[in-house]
Design a protein around this nucleic acid. Sequence first.
DNA 1: ACAAATTTTTAGTTTTGCCTAAATTTATTT
DNA 2: AAATAAATTTAGGCAAAACTAAAAATTTGT
Lengths: 217, 217
Amino acid sequence: MTLSEENYLKAIYHLEKQYKEGVPTNAIAEEMETKASSVTDMIKKLSGKKVLTHKKYQGARLTEKGLLHAKAVIRKHRLWESFLVEKLNFKWDEVHEVAEQLEHIKSEKLIRELDRFLGYPKTDPHGDPIPDEEGNIQVQEKELLSQLEVGERGICVGVRDSSAAFLQYLDKYGISLGKELAVLHKEAYDESMVVELDGKKITISNQGASNLYLKQK
Amino acid sequence: MTLSEENYLKAIYHLEKQYKEGVPTNAIAEEMETKASSVTDMIKKLSGKKVLTHKKYQGARLTEKGLLHAKAVIRKHRLWESFLVEKLNFKWDEVHEVAEQLEHIKSEKLIRELDRFLGYPKTDPHGDPIPDEEGNIQVQEKELLSQLEVGERGICVGVRDSSAAFLQYLDKYGISLGKELAVLHKEAYDESMVVELDGKKITISNQGASNLYLKQK
DNA sequence: ACAAATTTTTAGTTTTGCCTAAATTTATTT
DNA sequence: AAATAAATTTAGGCAAAACTAAAAATTTGT
Ligand SMILES: [Mn+2]
Ligand SMILES: [Mn+2]
Ligand SMILES: [Mn+2]
Ligand SMILES: [Mn+2]
Protein backbone atom coordinates (compact mmCIF):
# COMPACT_ATOMS: atom_id res chain seq x y z
CA MET A 1 0.00 0.00 0.00
CA THR A 2 1.31 3.42 -0.96
CA LEU A 3 1.16 6.45 1.29
CA SER A 4 -1.69 7.86 -0.76
CA GLU A 5 -3.68 4.64 -0.68
CA GLU A 6 -3.26 4.42 3.08
CA ASN A 7 -4.53 7.96 3.48
CA TYR A 8 -7.64 7.12 1.49
CA LEU A 9 -8.30 4.05 3.63
CA LYS A 10 -7.97 6.10 6.77
CA ALA A 11 -10.30 8.80 5.47
CA ILE A 12 -12.93 6.27 4.43
CA TYR A 13 -12.59 4.48 7.76
CA HIS A 14 -13.36 7.67 9.66
CA LEU A 15 -16.20 8.62 7.32
CA GLU A 16 -17.90 5.22 7.62
CA LYS A 17 -19.02 6.17 11.14
CA GLN A 18 -21.06 8.92 9.55
CA TYR A 19 -22.09 7.27 6.28
CA LYS A 20 -23.15 3.79 7.26
CA GLU A 21 -24.35 2.70 3.83
CA GLY A 22 -21.51 3.81 1.58
CA VAL A 23 -19.14 6.77 1.82
CA PRO A 24 -19.89 9.29 -0.96
CA THR A 25 -17.15 10.31 -3.36
CA ASN A 26 -17.59 13.95 -2.43
CA ALA A 27 -17.21 13.26 1.28
CA ILE A 28 -13.90 11.53 0.60
CA ALA A 29 -12.81 14.35 -1.68
CA GLU A 30 -13.48 16.92 1.01
CA GLU A 31 -11.72 14.90 3.71
CA MET A 32 -8.69 14.34 1.47
CA GLU A 33 -8.71 17.90 0.16
CA THR A 34 -8.75 16.67 -3.40
CA LYS A 35 -11.19 16.50 -6.33
CA ALA A 36 -14.03 14.04 -6.76
CA SER A 37 -12.55 12.78 -10.03
CA SER A 38 -9.31 11.89 -8.27
CA VAL A 39 -11.32 10.01 -5.68
CA THR A 40 -13.11 8.04 -8.37
CA ASP A 41 -9.74 7.02 -9.82
CA MET A 42 -8.45 5.91 -6.46
CA ILE A 43 -11.64 4.06 -5.59
CA LYS A 44 -11.20 2.00 -8.73
CA LYS A 45 -7.64 1.20 -7.83
CA LEU A 46 -8.50 0.29 -4.26
CA SER A 47 -11.44 -1.87 -5.23
CA GLY A 48 -9.07 -3.69 -7.58
CA LYS A 49 -6.95 -4.39 -4.54
CA LYS A 50 -9.98 -5.72 -2.67
CA VAL A 51 -9.68 -3.27 0.20
CA LEU A 52 -13.02 -1.69 -0.60
CA THR A 53 -16.14 -2.27 -2.66
CA HIS A 54 -18.17 0.19 -4.63
CA LYS A 55 -21.10 0.16 -6.98
CA LYS A 56 -21.09 3.05 -9.37
CA TYR A 57 -22.63 6.17 -7.85
CA GLN A 58 -23.18 4.29 -4.59
CA GLY A 59 -20.14 5.24 -2.52
CA ALA A 60 -17.36 3.15 -1.03
CA ARG A 61 -17.24 0.62 1.80
CA LEU A 62 -14.13 -0.93 3.27
CA THR A 63 -13.79 -4.69 3.07
CA GLU A 64 -12.53 -6.63 6.09
CA LYS A 65 -9.06 -6.42 4.56
CA GLY A 66 -9.35 -2.66 4.07
CA LEU A 67 -10.71 -2.18 7.57
CA LEU A 68 -7.77 -4.03 9.08
CA HIS A 69 -5.29 -2.02 7.09
CA ALA A 70 -6.96 1.27 8.04
CA LYS A 71 -6.86 0.32 11.71
CA ALA A 72 -3.21 -0.65 11.44
CA VAL A 73 -2.40 2.81 10.11
CA ILE A 74 -4.47 4.45 12.85
CA ARG A 75 -2.67 2.31 15.43
CA LYS A 76 0.65 3.58 14.16
CA HIS A 77 -0.55 7.17 14.07
CA ARG A 78 -1.71 7.07 17.67
CA LEU A 79 1.33 5.22 18.98
CA TRP A 80 3.60 7.79 17.34
CA GLU A 81 1.55 10.63 18.81
CA SER A 82 1.93 9.04 22.23
CA PHE A 83 5.67 8.69 21.72
CA LEU A 84 6.04 12.32 20.73
CA VAL A 85 4.19 13.54 23.82
CA GLU A 86 5.53 11.04 26.34
CA LYS A 87 9.17 10.94 25.28
CA LEU A 88 9.94 13.89 23.04
CA ASN A 89 8.29 16.83 24.86
CA PHE A 90 5.75 17.54 22.16
CA LYS A 91 2.50 19.25 23.17
CA TRP A 92 -0.76 17.58 22.20
CA ASP A 93 -1.38 20.26 19.58
CA GLU A 94 1.96 19.64 17.86
CA VAL A 95 1.87 15.92 17.18
CA HIS A 96 -0.64 15.37 14.43
CA GLU A 97 1.37 16.56 11.42
CA VAL A 98 4.42 14.56 12.32
CA ALA A 99 2.32 11.47 13.05
CA GLU A 100 0.77 11.84 9.60
CA GLN A 101 4.23 11.18 8.22
CA LEU A 102 5.34 8.54 10.72
CA GLU A 103 2.18 6.43 10.34
CA HIS A 104 3.38 5.28 6.90
CA ILE A 105 6.71 3.82 8.02
CA LYS A 106 6.74 0.12 7.25
CA SER A 107 8.12 -2.18 9.94
CA GLU A 108 6.19 -4.62 12.06
CA LYS A 109 8.97 -4.84 14.57
CA LEU A 110 9.20 -1.08 14.87
CA ILE A 111 5.60 -0.65 15.87
CA ARG A 112 5.54 -3.69 18.14
CA GLU A 113 8.62 -2.44 19.98
CA LEU A 114 7.33 1.12 20.12
CA ASP A 115 4.17 -0.16 21.76
CA ARG A 116 6.23 -2.05 24.33
CA PHE A 117 8.54 0.91 24.90
CA LEU A 118 5.54 3.12 25.67
CA GLY A 119 4.10 0.54 28.08
CA TYR A 120 1.19 -0.52 25.85
CA PRO A 121 -0.80 2.71 26.11
CA LYS A 122 -4.58 2.39 25.71
CA THR A 123 -5.18 5.87 24.35
CA ASP A 124 -3.31 8.58 22.48
CA PRO A 125 -2.71 12.15 23.73
CA HIS A 126 -6.18 13.17 22.55
CA GLY A 127 -7.93 10.35 24.38
CA ASP A 128 -8.48 8.30 21.23
CA PRO A 129 -8.16 4.52 21.66
CA ILE A 130 -5.11 2.75 20.21
CA PRO A 131 -6.11 -0.39 18.26
CA ASP A 132 -4.19 -3.53 19.25
CA GLU A 133 -2.22 -5.66 16.80
CA GLU A 134 -5.37 -7.51 15.75
CA GLY A 135 -7.27 -4.29 15.16
CA ASN A 136 -9.41 -4.51 18.29
CA ILE A 137 -10.45 -1.12 19.60
CA GLN A 138 -11.51 -0.70 23.18
CA VAL A 139 -14.30 1.84 23.31
CA GLN A 140 -14.64 3.64 26.60
CA GLU A 141 -17.90 5.25 27.55
CA LYS A 142 -17.82 8.99 27.55
CA GLU A 143 -20.11 11.90 26.81
CA LEU A 144 -19.71 15.44 25.64
CA LEU A 145 -19.51 18.10 28.31
CA SER A 146 -22.43 19.81 26.58
CA GLN A 147 -24.61 16.85 27.47
CA LEU A 148 -24.03 17.02 31.22
CA GLU A 149 -26.60 18.58 33.52
CA VAL A 150 -25.96 21.14 36.23
CA GLY A 151 -24.56 19.39 39.29
CA GLU A 152 -22.98 16.51 37.36
CA ARG A 153 -19.23 15.89 37.45
CA GLY A 154 -16.77 14.08 35.22
CA ILE A 155 -13.17 13.55 34.24
CA CYS A 156 -11.86 14.83 30.92
CA VAL A 157 -11.05 11.83 28.75
CA GLY A 158 -10.91 13.05 25.18
CA VAL A 159 -11.57 15.64 22.50
CA ARG A 160 -13.89 15.42 19.53
CA ASP A 161 -12.11 18.23 17.71
CA SER A 162 -8.36 17.76 17.85
CA SER A 163 -7.43 20.88 15.90
CA ALA A 164 -4.52 22.84 17.31
CA ALA A 165 -6.87 25.78 17.82
CA PHE A 166 -9.19 23.84 20.13
CA LEU A 167 -6.36 22.13 21.99
CA GLN A 168 -4.71 25.48 22.65
CA TYR A 169 -8.04 26.87 23.82
CA LEU A 170 -8.25 24.04 26.35
CA ASP A 171 -4.64 24.66 27.42
CA LYS A 172 -5.41 28.31 28.00
CA TYR A 173 -8.20 27.42 30.44
CA GLY A 174 -6.12 24.76 32.16
CA ILE A 175 -8.21 21.89 30.82
CA SER A 176 -6.30 18.68 30.15
CA LEU A 177 -7.12 14.99 30.08
CA GLY A 178 -7.46 13.48 33.53
CA LYS A 179 -8.79 16.64 35.17
CA GLU A 180 -12.10 16.56 36.96
CA LEU A 181 -14.76 19.19 36.49
CA ALA A 182 -18.25 19.91 37.74
CA VAL A 183 -21.05 21.71 35.93
CA LEU A 184 -22.13 24.69 38.02
CA HIS A 185 -24.42 26.50 35.63
CA LYS A 186 -25.83 26.33 32.14
CA GLU A 187 -26.76 29.52 30.32
CA ALA A 188 -30.10 28.98 28.57
CA TYR A 189 -29.53 31.75 26.03
CA ASP A 190 -26.30 30.51 24.35
CA GLU A 191 -25.81 27.13 26.04
CA SER A 192 -22.48 28.20 27.49
CA MET A 193 -21.53 26.50 30.76
CA VAL A 194 -19.85 27.53 33.95
CA VAL A 195 -17.77 24.69 35.34
CA GLU A 196 -15.52 24.23 38.32
CA LEU A 197 -12.00 23.06 37.62
CA ASP A 198 -9.18 22.98 40.18
CA GLY A 199 -11.35 25.08 42.48
CA LYS A 200 -11.78 27.83 39.90
CA LYS A 201 -14.85 28.74 37.89
CA ILE A 202 -14.50 28.89 34.14
CA THR A 203 -16.99 29.61 31.40
CA ILE A 204 -16.98 27.40 28.31
CA SER A 205 -18.88 28.18 25.13
CA ASN A 206 -21.27 25.65 23.69
CA GLN A 207 -18.81 25.09 20.88
CA GLY A 208 -16.10 24.22 23.38
CA ALA A 209 -18.40 22.04 25.48
CA SER A 210 -19.50 20.16 22.37
CA ASN A 211 -15.97 19.03 21.67
CA LEU A 212 -14.78 17.84 25.06
CA TYR A 213 -15.48 14.30 26.20
CA LEU A 214 -15.93 13.44 29.87
CA LYS A 215 -16.29 10.23 31.75
CA GLN A 216 -19.12 10.83 34.13
CA LYS A 217 -18.53 10.15 37.81
CA MET B 1 13.16 18.13 -1.22
CA THR B 2 11.42 14.90 -2.15
CA LEU B 3 12.40 11.51 -0.81
CA SER B 4 14.02 10.65 -4.11
CA GLU B 5 15.99 13.89 -4.29
CA GLU B 6 17.26 13.37 -0.75
CA ASN B 7 18.43 9.88 -1.62
CA TYR B 8 20.40 11.24 -4.57
CA LEU B 9 22.05 13.87 -2.38
CA LYS B 10 23.02 11.22 0.14
CA ALA B 11 24.45 8.95 -2.54
CA ILE B 12 26.47 11.76 -4.10
CA TYR B 13 27.68 12.85 -0.68
CA HIS B 14 29.08 9.39 0.03
CA LEU B 15 30.58 9.06 -3.45
CA GLU B 16 32.38 12.41 -3.24
CA LYS B 17 34.88 10.86 -0.83
CA GLN B 18 35.90 8.58 -3.64
CA TYR B 19 35.48 10.88 -6.65
CA LYS B 20 37.01 14.15 -5.55
CA GLU B 21 36.65 15.94 -8.88
CA GLY B 22 33.07 15.15 -9.84
CA VAL B 23 30.92 12.07 -9.19
CA PRO B 24 30.29 10.18 -12.46
CA THR B 25 26.74 9.51 -13.57
CA ASN B 26 27.40 5.79 -13.66
CA ALA B 27 28.69 5.73 -10.09
CA ILE B 28 25.49 7.40 -8.92
CA ALA B 29 23.40 5.01 -11.00
CA GLU B 30 25.09 2.02 -9.43
CA GLU B 31 24.74 3.38 -5.90
CA MET B 32 21.07 4.20 -6.44
CA GLU B 33 20.37 0.96 -8.28
CA THR B 34 18.90 2.84 -11.21
CA LYS B 35 19.85 3.68 -14.81
CA ALA B 36 22.30 6.35 -15.94
CA SER B 37 19.59 8.11 -17.92
CA SER B 38 17.48 8.49 -14.80
CA VAL B 39 20.49 9.95 -13.03
CA THR B 40 21.01 12.49 -15.80
CA ASP B 41 17.40 13.60 -15.43
CA MET B 42 17.73 13.98 -11.69
CA ILE B 43 21.07 15.79 -11.92
CA LYS B 44 19.38 18.38 -14.12
CA LYS B 45 16.61 18.82 -11.62
CA LEU B 46 18.96 19.07 -8.67
CA SER B 47 21.27 21.52 -10.38
CA GLY B 48 18.18 23.63 -11.08
CA LYS B 49 17.62 23.62 -7.32
CA LYS B 50 21.21 24.73 -6.75
CA VAL B 51 22.10 21.77 -4.56
CA LEU B 52 24.69 20.53 -7.03
CA THR B 53 26.62 21.66 -10.07
CA HIS B 54 27.51 19.73 -13.16
CA LYS B 55 29.09 20.37 -16.50
CA LYS B 56 27.96 17.96 -19.16
CA TYR B 57 29.91 14.71 -19.10
CA GLN B 58 31.86 15.99 -16.08
CA GLY B 59 30.01 14.48 -13.14
CA ALA B 60 28.21 16.10 -10.22
CA ARG B 61 29.44 18.02 -7.17
CA LEU B 62 27.35 19.11 -4.24
CA THR B 63 27.10 22.81 -3.53
CA GLU B 64 27.35 24.06 0.05
CA LYS B 65 23.57 23.97 0.16
CA GLY B 66 23.45 20.39 -1.13
CA LEU B 67 26.16 19.31 1.27
CA LEU B 68 24.26 20.70 4.24
CA HIS B 69 21.08 18.99 3.15
CA ALA B 70 22.85 15.67 2.63
CA LYS B 71 24.40 15.87 6.09
CA ALA B 72 21.03 16.72 7.62
CA VAL B 73 19.58 13.54 6.12
CA ILE B 74 22.55 11.50 7.32
CA ARG B 75 22.15 13.01 10.78
CA LYS B 76 18.55 11.84 10.85
CA HIS B 77 19.44 8.40 9.55
CA ARG B 78 22.05 7.85 12.23
CA LEU B 79 19.96 9.26 15.07
CA TRP B 80 17.10 6.97 14.12
CA GLU B 81 19.45 3.98 13.95
CA SER B 82 20.68 4.86 17.45
CA PHE B 83 17.11 5.12 18.68
CA LEU B 84 16.18 1.74 17.26
CA VAL B 85 19.12 0.03 18.92
CA GLU B 86 19.14 1.92 22.22
CA LYS B 87 15.42 2.06 22.89
CA LEU B 88 13.62 -0.44 20.69
CA ASN B 89 15.74 -3.58 20.99
CA PHE B 90 16.84 -3.64 17.36
CA LYS B 91 20.11 -5.35 16.50
CA TRP B 92 22.70 -3.39 14.53
CA ASP B 93 22.00 -5.47 11.45
CA GLU B 94 18.27 -4.67 11.53
CA VAL B 95 18.21 -0.88 11.62
CA HIS B 96 19.30 0.31 8.22
CA GLU B 97 16.15 -0.36 6.22
CA VAL B 98 13.87 1.28 8.74
CA ALA B 99 16.21 4.26 9.09
CA GLU B 100 16.11 4.64 5.30
CA GLN B 101 12.42 5.41 5.72
CA LEU B 102 12.62 7.44 8.91
CA GLU B 103 15.39 9.73 7.62
CA HIS B 104 12.87 11.47 5.33
CA ILE B 105 10.43 12.53 8.06
CA LYS B 106 10.24 16.31 8.13
CA SER B 107 10.25 17.97 11.53
CA GLU B 108 13.02 20.04 13.03
CA LYS B 109 11.63 19.62 16.50
CA LEU B 110 11.38 15.87 16.13
CA ILE B 111 15.04 15.42 15.36
CA ARG B 112 16.21 17.95 17.91
CA GLU B 113 14.19 16.22 20.62
CA LEU B 114 15.24 12.77 19.49
CA ASP B 115 18.86 13.84 19.81
CA ARG B 116 18.21 15.10 23.34
CA PHE B 117 16.25 11.99 24.25
CA LEU B 118 19.18 9.81 23.20
CA GLY B 119 21.66 11.91 25.19
CA TYR B 120 23.34 13.54 22.18
CA PRO B 121 25.10 10.41 20.90
CA LYS B 122 28.33 10.98 18.96
CA THR B 123 28.13 7.87 16.82
CA ASP B 124 25.51 5.51 15.47
CA PRO B 125 25.36 1.75 16.11
CA HIS B 126 27.92 1.13 13.36
CA GLY B 127 30.41 3.61 14.76
CA ASP B 128 29.65 6.27 12.17
CA PRO B 129 29.70 9.87 13.43
CA ILE B 130 26.42 11.75 13.83
CA PRO B 131 26.59 15.25 12.31
CA ASP B 132 25.43 18.03 14.62
CA GLU B 133 22.69 20.51 13.76
CA GLU B 134 25.13 22.70 11.83
CA GLY B 135 26.46 19.74 9.85
CA ASN B 136 29.75 19.44 11.71
CA ILE B 137 31.11 15.92 11.73
CA GLN B 138 33.59 14.85 14.34
CA VAL B 139 36.06 12.47 12.71
CA GLN B 140 37.70 10.08 15.09
CA GLU B 141 40.98 8.48 14.18
CA LYS B 142 40.72 4.81 13.45
CA GLU B 143 42.34 2.22 11.24
CA LEU B 144 41.32 -1.03 9.67
CA LEU B 145 42.18 -4.17 11.57
CA SER B 146 43.97 -5.35 8.42
CA GLN B 147 46.45 -2.53 8.84
CA LEU B 148 47.56 -3.48 12.35
CA GLU B 149 50.80 -5.34 12.91
CA VAL B 150 51.32 -8.40 15.05
CA GLY B 151 51.47 -7.37 18.69
CA GLU B 152 49.33 -4.25 18.27
CA ARG B 153 46.04 -3.86 20.12
CA GLY B 154 42.94 -1.77 19.60
CA ILE B 155 39.29 -1.22 20.44
CA CYS B 156 36.60 -1.88 17.85
CA VAL B 157 35.05 1.44 16.90
CA GLY B 158 33.31 0.96 13.59
CA VAL B 159 32.61 -1.01 10.44
CA ARG B 160 33.41 -0.09 6.88
CA ASP B 161 30.90 -2.59 5.50
CA SER B 162 27.60 -2.33 7.36
CA SER B 163 25.78 -5.04 5.44
CA ALA B 164 23.71 -7.39 7.56
CA ALA B 165 25.91 -10.26 6.39
CA PHE B 166 29.08 -8.69 7.79
CA LEU B 167 27.44 -7.53 11.00
CA GLN B 168 26.09 -11.01 11.63
CA TYR B 169 29.54 -12.45 10.92
CA LEU B 170 30.95 -10.16 13.60
CA ASP B 171 28.16 -11.15 16.01
CA LYS B 172 28.96 -14.81 15.48
CA TYR B 173 32.56 -14.29 16.55
CA GLY B 174 31.57 -12.12 19.50
CA ILE B 175 32.97 -8.95 17.97
CA SER B 176 31.11 -5.77 18.87
CA LEU B 177 31.97 -2.10 19.17
CA GLY B 178 33.87 -1.29 22.36
CA LYS B 179 35.63 -4.63 22.56
CA GLU B 180 39.38 -4.76 22.68
CA LEU B 181 41.45 -7.10 20.59
CA ALA B 182 45.10 -7.90 19.99
CA VAL B 183 46.75 -9.15 16.83
CA LEU B 184 48.51 -12.44 17.57
CA HIS B 185 49.44 -13.60 14.12
CA LYS B 186 49.19 -12.65 10.48
CA GLU B 187 49.10 -15.38 7.85
CA ALA B 188 51.33 -14.33 4.97
CA TYR B 189 49.58 -16.54 2.43
CA ASP B 190 45.99 -15.18 2.63
CA GLU B 191 46.46 -12.24 4.99
CA SER B 192 44.06 -13.74 7.51
CA MET B 193 44.69 -12.78 11.13
CA VAL B 194 44.54 -14.51 14.46
CA VAL B 195 43.39 -12.12 17.15
CA GLU B 196 42.70 -12.38 20.83
CA LEU B 197 39.30 -11.26 22.01
CA ASP B 198 37.89 -11.82 25.52
CA GLY B 199 40.77 -14.22 26.16
CA LYS B 200 39.89 -16.38 23.15
CA LYS B 201 41.73 -16.75 19.86
CA ILE B 202 39.76 -16.15 16.69
CA THR B 203 40.75 -16.18 13.06
CA ILE B 204 39.51 -13.41 10.81
CA SER B 205 39.80 -13.44 7.03
CA ASN B 206 41.43 -10.56 5.23
CA GLN B 207 38.00 -9.58 3.96
CA GLY B 208 36.71 -9.37 7.52
CA ALA B 209 39.79 -7.53 8.79
CA SER B 210 39.48 -5.01 5.96
CA ASN B 211 36.06 -3.95 7.12
CA LEU B 212 36.52 -3.51 10.85
CA TYR B 213 37.81 -0.24 12.24
CA LEU B 214 39.85 -0.10 15.43
CA LYS B 215 41.13 2.69 17.56
CA GLN B 216 44.71 1.74 18.28
CA LYS B 217 45.82 1.64 21.91
C1' DA C 1 45.97 10.33 -34.70
C1' DC C 2 42.17 7.78 -35.21
C1' DA C 3 39.25 3.74 -34.43
C1' DA C 4 36.99 1.35 -30.78
C1' DA C 5 35.09 1.19 -26.36
C1' DT C 6 32.97 3.48 -22.70
C1' DT C 7 30.27 7.00 -20.64
C1' DT C 8 26.76 10.30 -20.78
C1' DT C 9 22.90 12.54 -22.70
C1' DT C 10 18.65 12.83 -25.42
C1' DA C 11 14.21 11.19 -27.04
C1' DG C 12 10.30 8.87 -26.37
C1' DT C 13 7.36 5.81 -22.93
C1' DT C 14 5.26 4.23 -18.60
C1' DT C 15 3.00 4.56 -14.00
C1' DT C 16 1.10 7.08 -10.14
C1' DG C 17 -1.66 10.53 -8.46
C1' DC C 18 -3.41 14.49 -9.43
C1' DC C 19 -6.07 18.06 -12.40
C1' DT C 20 -10.13 20.38 -15.56
C1' DA C 21 -13.94 19.95 -18.49
C1' DA C 22 -17.57 17.33 -20.21
C1' DA C 23 -20.79 13.57 -19.96
C1' DT C 24 -23.71 10.69 -17.28
C1' DT C 25 -26.47 9.20 -13.44
C1' DT C 26 -29.17 10.08 -9.37
C1' DA C 27 -31.85 13.17 -6.44
C1' DT C 28 -34.93 17.03 -5.83
C1' DT C 29 -38.38 20.34 -7.35
C1' DT C 30 -42.15 22.00 -9.63
C1' DA D 1 -43.61 13.21 -14.85
C1' DA D 2 -40.57 16.38 -16.38
C1' DA D 3 -37.24 19.67 -15.50
C1' DT D 4 -33.57 21.15 -12.80
C1' DA D 5 -29.89 20.48 -9.61
C1' DA D 6 -26.39 17.80 -7.51
C1' DA D 7 -23.25 14.03 -7.42
C1' DT D 8 -20.34 10.98 -9.86
C1' DT D 9 -17.82 9.21 -13.58
C1' DT D 10 -15.28 9.59 -17.97
C1' DA D 11 -11.96 11.63 -21.06
C1' DG D 12 -7.90 13.81 -21.78
C1' DG D 13 -3.68 15.92 -19.67
C1' DC D 14 0.23 17.06 -16.56
C1' DA D 15 4.41 16.35 -13.55
C1' DA D 16 7.57 13.22 -11.11
C1' DA D 17 10.52 9.52 -11.43
C1' DA D 18 11.49 5.70 -13.50
C1' DC D 19 12.56 2.92 -18.05
C1' DT D 20 14.65 1.51 -23.12
C1' DA D 21 16.88 2.64 -27.24
C1' DA D 22 19.55 5.66 -29.83
C1' DA D 23 22.68 9.57 -30.37
C1' DA D 24 26.61 12.18 -28.87
C1' DA D 25 30.79 13.05 -26.26
C1' DT D 26 34.80 11.41 -24.01
C1' DT D 27 38.37 8.16 -23.07
C1' DT D 28 41.36 4.39 -24.34
C1' DG D 29 44.21 1.50 -27.24
C1' DT D 30 46.98 0.89 -31.19
MN1 LIG E 1 -3.64 12.82 14.87
MN1 LIG F 1 -4.70 11.66 18.10
MN1 LIG G 1 22.34 2.86 7.81
MN1 LIG H 1 24.73 3.40 10.37
